[in-house]
């Protein structure tokens, strides 16, 4: 970040010395004014609508070349490295080798957070006075993100975790805890324990874009916390709506056990 800033300053210096006219334009490009999103009736940024990622994180959150059935993709992990503890790095490698059968998503299980966000399926965000509700097309996952109460005491294992939201300026910050150790972050074997703690940040960047950031913390598996970043895109089709991807039913149908 620092380096990028210095480079842009150098560029400004060169341009200024040549053609002073473009100074105003340069300032605009370097630091655009923050987008001011439309508001809900209670004054919160309006995140409602149908959204979807355009990336390959569901297959692999890190840089990866194409594999059969898997598009190549640049990673969504900040710095690309995941700070696994030594035993966990070995486990990740083993998961990767066994991924075709071992990925929990292959069993049609709920994919956990944040993986549900970057599954290649749309989801719809709704807002009320005390909650943000997200319904996902993929295996009809639901997240009820209350913004008016703390987490429940104790650890309650769950696939999607328990979500609690709060607003920091125009950003919806969602604290997600109470996970089990059964889900993976992607189809490449990146994993966590039941000590996983995720903090998500949803910030509107324009009429059709949300900047999404997830901070991952799990002292049983990683040496420090790390982050993913990506963009959520608004589905533009006038008739866009959430349909079904009932993985388990489709699997049973394929096996001849459902008409």
């Amino acid at each position: 970040m620092g380096l990028r800033f210095i480079r842009s300053m150098m560029l400004v210096g060169v341009v200024v010395s040549l053609t002073p006219v473009t100074v105003a334009g340069q300032a605009r490009a370097a630091d655009p004014p923050a987008y001011s999103p439309p508001r809900t009736p209670d004054g919160k940024p309006d995140l409602q609508g149908i959204w979807q990622v355009l990336n390959t994180a569901a297959w692999d959150i890190q840089d990866h070349p194409a594999r059969l059935g898997v598009p190549a993709g640049q990673g969504v992990v900040e710095g690309n490295d995941i700070p696994y503890q030594p035993w966990a790095a070995a486990k990740k490698k083993e998961n990767f080798e066994n991924r075709v059968k071992a990925d929990p998503v292959e069993k049609c299980y709920l994919p956990g957070v944040p993986r549900i966000v970057y599954m290649p399926y749309p989801f719809q965000i709704f807002q009320t006075a005390n909650a943000t509700v997200i319904l996902y097309e993929y295996v009809h996952a639901v997240r009820m993100i209350y913004t008016d109460r703390p987490h429940l005491p104790g650890h309650i294992d769950s696939w999607m975790g328990q979500s609690r939201g709060r607003w920091e300026g125009d950003t919806l910050v969602v604290d997600v805890a109470d996970f089990n150790d059964q889900t993976w972050f992607d189809g490449a074997g990146n994993f966590h324990s039941d000590a996983l703690h995720v903090v998500e940040r949803y910030t509107r960047k324009g009429p059709d874009h949300i900047a999404y950031e997830a901070t991952i913390e799990d002292p049983k598996v990683f040496t420090r916390s790390w982050k993913m970043n990506m963009t959520l895109y608004r589905r533009q089709e006038k008739n866009a709506q959430i349909l079904d991807y009932e993985c388990h039913a489709l699997e049973e149908e394929a096996a001849g056990r459902l008409k």
Binding site: P41, Q48, Q127, T128, V133
Partner: peptide, 11 residues
Amino acid sequence: IVQPPHYIVIL
């Protein structure tokens, strides 16, 4: 029952 604007959502 949850009622965001212009919808009824039943969970």
